[in-house]
Simulated scan of single mutants.
Amino acid sequence: MSHESIPLAGVIGFPIIHSRSPQLHGHWLKTLGLRGHYVPMEVHPDNLAEALQALPKLGFVGVNVTMPHKEAVLELASHVTDRASLIGAANTLIFREDGTFHADNTDGYGFIENLRQNAPDWDPQVGPAAILGAGGAARAVVVSLLDAGVPEVMISNRTQLRAERLAQDFGNRVTAVDWGHASRMIGEAALVVNTTSLGMADKPELKVNLDGLHAGQVVTDIVYNPLKTKLLARAEAQGCVTVDGLGMLLHQAVPGFERWFGIKPKVTEALRDATLG
């Protein structure tokens, strides 16, 4: 006698209290009328391997992964997608029936889909992209921009060495720019991206000279709290097309939800409201 199980998914991190993913996936489950649950789980780094072995046995079909586990899960996965290994981190795990799991990174996908939805006239090939920051998020953005056909990516970071290391990993289409010259880099770019947490609520402001911003540019910030960062407000005042960071969070969730629950969900205004609510 077979029984139908209710698929479970969730997000693991340490801490997990700030995650917006439960509201996001919960909205989709409810509006699509699907049986299933999405659960936030605080998992200490010492217990990560054990938790990932136990979750499939408890009925979980997969999980999202947030800080500080995004790199550690790659070591434990039985299969890692090309983009996850290129980025050096995973944010989406798909559990298999034999207890092994598949690790993917959908951050870059979320970043590009957010731009496509909210700056539909953006043409990747029209000119270079300027990226502020050289952490894990910057890596995902670089991979996705090169993939989309951006001719040149310039990276500037307060610690120059990190920017240089990141640039070296990607060859001659990616260059590191001294933080002191970030203003000039911004002026030369068709797309400007802040991948740092600077400008986020409770974090220091992004201290970069923004005089280079001008009409015709697309400017996006991966920070979504506040939705309109000072960078975006300034860009808007200069006549740039601006895209906030919330859409990246929403779009990166689509591939995982589709794999876990069997339906490709849509990113809508109602979803934005539910995620922020």
Rank of each mutant, 00 (worst) to 15 (best):
G99C: 03
D147H: 14
T92Q: 09
A54D: 12
H102V: 08
Q117F: 08
P45M: 12
I94E: 13
A72E: 13
K57A: 15
R83L: 10
F95K: 01
P128G: 13
V126A: 15
F60Q: 01
L74A: 06
G99T: 00
A130T: 06
P45W: 11
L55S: 04
K70G: 02
L86S: 13
K57N: 12
V65P: 02
D104T: 11
A119H: 07
I87S: 04
L86K: 15
V73K: 03
L58K: 06
H69V: 05
A103C: 12
A134L: 10
E113G: 04
G108N: 08
A84W: 02
F60N: 03
D46V: 06
G136H: 09
L76V: 12
P45R: 11
D82M: 11
A84R: 01
N105A: 10
A129C: 13
L48R: 02
S85F: 06
W122S: 03
W122A: 02
L48F: 08
A77P: 00
G110A: 06
H79Q: 14
F60E: 00
R139W: 04
A119I: 07
G133M: 04
D104S: 12
D82R: 14
D123A: 14
L145V: 09
D123F: 07
V126N: 14
G133I: 00
V73P: 01
T100L: 08
G62I: 04
P68G: 05
A134K: 01
D82N: 13
V63D: 01
G62V: 05
S85H: 12
R116N: 13
S78R: 13
G62S: 10
E50A: 14
G135L: 09
K57R: 15
L145K: 05
A84E: 02
P128L: 03
N64W: 07
D46M: 05
V143A: 15
G135K: 04
L52N: 00
T66N: 08
G135M: 08
Q53K: 15
I94K: 10
L93M: 08
T66D: 05
S144M: 13
T100F: 01
D147C: 10
L115V: 12
N114W: 09
I94A: 11
A49Y: 00
L146E: 00
N114P: 10
M67A: 13
T100H: 05
V141S: 02
D147E: 15
V73C: 06
